[in-house]
Every structure is written in structure tokens, then in C-alpha cells.
Amino acid sequence: MFDVFALGPTGWGDEMLMGAVMTVLVSSSSLLLGITIGIIFAACKLSNFFILRAIAEVYTTIIRGIPELLVIYLLFFGGSSAVMYLAKIFGYMGYIELNAFTIGTIAVGAISGAYSTEVIRGAVNSVPKGQFEVGKTLGFSRYSLYGKIIFPQVARIALPGIGNVWQITLKDTALISVTGLVEIMRQSRIAAGSTHEPFIFYTAAIILYLLITRLSNIVFDSAEKKYSKGYVSREAI
């Protein structure tokens, strides 16, 4: 029964593991893109300009209100032509095709960006107001106030929330399989189709996802412990 998972050309073991590596790669790059988007849009949501706040509000409402699959279809079918349109403005007339990895990263990154925005905004809001005031009183520039005082605290407070976003992102990457990127989901479909053993391969995929979840929980837990050293939780006071 386990012959089908043999390594090398006779079985699907190494292919499934490569699929897991691809899932981790595309999830991590999506999360990084998502956090970057999250920082920008959280800044927009907290800004004094109405237009910026409105743009950020529209973005998070749309992403959180429509199915992830639609966002992926939009980029899958429209991503390349959008890039070509932009390239034309800069004078490049050739044909550009985005690969499945790039499309997947942008799509899932845009989705996790909306969730990260809320996490980061919440974290900035929970930094005590006194910190901002003291920084200003001590003559910190806006740049170093945010860079040296606010950002480190935001990172610490946002860490558990980002852990949740990572779980969502990890699961959302399964949807990229519809665009042809060979990650766990796609690989188990291919293997199930060619061996006529769907049960075994989907079970293997479930185990791989649970393993990745378990491992990332350990990483996030230890990071949380490390960065909350010297802090006492509010309940304890």
C-alpha cells in the first residue's frame, strides 16, 4: 500500500514532498507580500487623509467579502494582460506571461494583505498613547519615533495575529492549484489520477498540511515567547 510513496521514479513520495516545499514557498512569499501590503494599508487606515482611509476601507471590505477563488480567477485570467498594459505605458510592446507561482503569490498575498491590515492596525492602536507623546516630547523625528519606538512594539503585539494570518494563507494556497501550480493539492490530484488511489493521496495531503501547521505553530509559539520576554500580560497585573 505504501509502494506508491516510494522515492524516485517508481513512486510519488518525492513528488509529494516537493509539493509540500512548494506550498511552504508560495505561502511564505504570499505572507511576506501580505505583511508589506498590510503595513501600507494599516498606515492608510490610520492616516488623517479621508481618501487614503477610504481606499484602504474599500480594499479590505472587498477582499474580506468576496470568495478567494474569484480573486485568483481575476489574476489568473487578467494578470498577464494587466502587466502587459502597464509595460506598454513604459514602451515595452512584447508578450509577457506571468507564471503560476507569481500569480498565486500576488493573489494570495492580496488576500492575506487584507487580514494583515486589520491585525497591524489593531496592534498600532494598542500601543499606549503615552509612547507617542513621550517620543514627541523627547524630540524624536516622526521617522525615528515610528522606526525605533512604535514599530518594535507593534511587531510584538501583532505576532499572534500574524500567526493566524499565516494559517489562513497556508490554506488559501490550496486554491492556487486551480491555476496549475504544483503544490500539495495539485500534486495529490495528479498522483490520485494516475494511480487511481485518491483516498491514499488525499490522506497524505491532509497529513502534510497538518504537519506544516504543527511545525509553524511551534515556530510562532517560540517567537512569541522570545519577544514577550520582560512583558507581563495585562491579566496578570
Binding site: 483516498f199 488525499y202 491532509i206 498540511y209 497538518l210
Partner: peptide
């Protein structure tokens, strides 16, 4: 709960639709 929350919904759907019908 751990199993369902730890795996993608698409995989669960494939498991029910394709995986179970194997037997």
C-alpha cells in the same frame, strides 16, 4: 476540530468527493 481547521476546505471537498468513492 483540529483536523478540519488545519486543512484546506478544497482538500476536504476532494477527499469526500473523490477519495471516498474509491472504495
Amino acid at each position: 476540530v483540529y483536523l478540519i481547521r488545519g486543512t484546506p476546505l478544497l482538500l476536504q471537498l476532494y477527499f469526500v468527493y473523490y477519495g471516498l468513492s474509491q472504495f
